[in-house]
Design a protein around this nucleic acid. Structure first.
Lengths: 213, 213
DNA sequence: ATACTTATGCGACATTAAGCACTATTTGTG
DNA sequence: CACAAATAGTGCTTAATGTCGCATAAGTAT
């Protein structure tokens, strides 16, 4: 069935599955079934089996799925074969927090935070977390040198558009944008917006619906 | 049509609509049509009209929708009549970044960041952004005093469960959880998980699918 | 071995969401 | 005031997603 037409809904669940597999692997689990995944993730077991079937026959009847195989398979599906290198553009409050946080060490085998960039002389040259903060002028050069694939954009909204263009020109094809601005990229540039105020509103609305307060 | 059975898909779009209305209102726009919203948000105009119709007849034929009315109406739908008070639990890297960031001042009329909480003596008593950081011991008391409705949980994953219980006991009914742990709440506690590593994985996967690299 | 249990993969069906196309109404213009 | 243009609201069609149930294969116990 792996004709490479993965439904949107399945795509959305991929990282959720992967996170679960990793946590199970760490906990020493050797095998899982669609039922056991279902219990933990609250996704119907039939949905899980269907999702996996888009990638081929990953399991064995009567046995289930082997955790190590799943982790390896999903890791390659999500990240590809090479480690993804990530840079933080804009080392202000949020940017420096993310640098220090370093994903809680959670994705280190497949993704790596490798640099920060800013235009503010007072942070340029500093090392935050494990990363040196470079001048934005050096973006092109460092991106090539370190093989950076992904940019996390944490600049003020006024500078977001300009930063996006610089990132695009440096040859980066994926942006996770924290600035509350709608950015549009050319063909081949994938932009993923994260807006904390949107998340909070969604929380509020769900509270309202669930309790009518 | 407002029988209070809002489809999930519509719920998910509510904050997106609201954000757009606010930005248009700020820009001085007085009226919008489902067509103009559609152009900006890339949601089919019929879907937009249908979404709105679940809340009654919000527009006028031949005219469209009045922006100020939409903002007011959606604001009440999402937040209710009173300003929501938010506290940050765990004033580490991410927590203090969020305190300083203060949502970029973007939701100030309907939500307000009012306090931080931590167990670390070196931050307790400090003022970050506009908020005082209190000792976790004071949670119950300050929540009542300041009428806090929502907690943003930015503690290390080891302390997340314990913090959740404290939050629940203090009478807060909504948690936005940044810790990479699955938290489950009792009936009436709404938990919304935000996991940056998940977002990054989703970005990676989309890059892979869109470019096959 | 044999029977029983577990659990996948998949066809068929059910539910939910999206979008077309029509109708009814209001606006705006000459 | 009359008429063209604009646009909401909605019945119905189509597409996407989710779920059931079963045939089949693997594992497990006697």
């Amino acid at each position: 069935m792996s004709d490479r037409i993965i439904p949107e809904a399945t795509k959305r669940r991929m990282p959720i599955y992967y996170k679960y597999f990793k946590s199970q692997q760490e906990a020493g689990t050797k095998r899982v079934s669609s039922k056991s995944i279902s219990d933990s993730l609250d996704i119907d077991s039939a949905t899980i089996r269907r999702d996996f079937s888009y990638f081929g026959e990953l399991g064995r009847k009567g046995y289930g799925y082997n955790i190590d195989s799943l982790v390896d398979f999903f890791s390659e599906q999500i990240f590809g074969k090479t480690v993804k290198k990530v840079a933080i553009i804009g080392v202000g409050n949020l940017g420096s927090a993310l640098l220090r946080y370093n994903f809680g060490g959670n994705v280190s085998n497949s993704m790596q935070l490798v640099a920060g960039f800013d235009i503010d002389e007072t942070v340029i040259g500093k090392t935050i977390g494990n990363c040196v903060v470079y001048n934005m002028d050096e973006l092109n050069h460092i991106v090539k040198e370190k093989n950076i694939n992904i940019a996390i954009l944490t600049v003020p909204k006024e500078s977001a558009e300009e930063a996006k263009i610089a990132i695009e020109n440096a040859g980066i094809h994926g942006i996770m944008n924290f600035a509350p601005v709608k950015l549009t990229g050319h063909e081949g540039l994938v932009i993923h917006d994260v807006d904390i105020t949107l998340e909070l509103q969604s929380l509020c609305f769900n509270m309202k619906l669930s309790r009518g307060e």
